[in-house]
Design a protein around this nucleic acid. Structure first.
Lengths: 133, 133
DNA sequence: ATCCCTGCAAAATATTTGCATTCCG
DNA sequence: CGGAATGCAAATATTTTGCAGGGAT
C-alpha cells in the first residue's frame, strides 16, 4: 500500500464524507468542501475519494449512473426508492451466511456481497404510476 | 405503457441480448449488431436497450461504471471478480425471504433486491496482490 | 530533498438529446 | 396518414489524466 500524506484537501474530503448521512455523490461532496475551501478542484475531490475508499476509510457504491459515498465502512445493505431515487441504509443485518454459501457453491474466495433493495417509499407508493412505461 | 413498434433495429438489439451469455455492455451489443446491420447507430442501440429493459424483455444492471445487459429477466444474483472484473451468474437461489423481512422492517413496498458478490476468481486468487493499494 | 499532492485544462468514457427523415401499423 | 423510431451530430454527465508547481515528511 502506497504511502499517503495528510493534506488539508484530503482531510476536508474525508470529513465531508464522515459527516454526511445522505450517501452523497462526488459532485455533492465537491460542493460541500468548496464551501470551506473554495479553491479545491474537482479532480482533487475525485482523487481523494478514490484513495480514501481504497484505504477503507470510506465506502464507495454504484447507484444509477453515479457513484455515492458512505461513512459507514462495515458491510450493510441499502434501500433505493424506484420512484424518487432516494437512498438509505436498510435495517437488515448483513447475511454472512450467503458468503459461506457462495464459497461452497463456487469455490471462489468471497470478499463480500452488496445488496440493494428496490422499493417504493411511502410517498411514491401513493402516486399513480410507480413503475412507468 | 406507450405503444411500441417492431423494427429491424429493435429486433436485432433484442436478439443480440437474448443470444448473449456474457452480460454485455451497450458498446458490446452495438458492435455485435453492427456485424449484421452496419448502418445502425449507437443512439438506436442505447434507446432500444432502454425500451426493452423498461418492458422487462431484458434486464439491465449496474456494474463498475458501465451498465450491462442480461437475457435472464427473473431475479438472480451475480458474481464479479475484484481482480479481473469478469461477471457471471451466481449459483445461489434468490432469497425471497429478505424481501419479506425488508417489508416488515421498513413498511415499504419491496419490489426486489439486487445482490452482487465480490470475489476472487481462481486465476486472480493466485496473483500476488489481489487487493492493491 | 524527495516525491506525493494539487489545480487547471483537456481527455476519456458512457449515455442522451435535437432534428430532419424514414417507415411501421 | 400519424407518430414512433432512426441516423447523425452535438450535447451531457461523470470521472480520469497530463503537467507544472507546491507542500508534507
Amino acid at each position: 500500500m502506497k504511502q499517503t500524506r495528510q493534506t488539508r484537501q484530503r482531510r476536508l474530503v474525508l470529513e465531508a464524507v464522515l459527516q454526511s448521512r445522505d450517501h452523497p455523490t462526488a459532485e455533492n461532496l465537491y460542493n460541500r468542501v468548496r464551501e470551506i475551501e473554495p479553491r479545491i478542484s474537482r479532480a482533487t475531490v475525485y482523487r481523494n475519494l478514490r484513495v480514501l475508499a481504497a484505504h477503507n476509510a470510506i465506502r464507495q457504491m454504484k447507484s444509477a449512473g453515479v457513484d455515492r459515498f458512505d461513512w459507514k465502512t462495515e458491510p450493510h445493505y441499502h434501500l433505493v426508492c424506484a420512484g424518487c431515487n432516494t437512498l438509505w441504509d436498510a435495517p437488515i443485518d448483513y447475511q454472512g451466511g450467503l458468503d459461506e454459501l457462495a464459497a461452497q457453491k463456487t469455490g471462489c474466495e468471497i470478499l463480500r456481497h452488496r445488496t440493494i433493495f428496490e422499493v417504493l417509499c411511502a410517498d411514491c407508493a401513493k402516486k399513480p404510476a410507480p413503475r412507468p412505461e
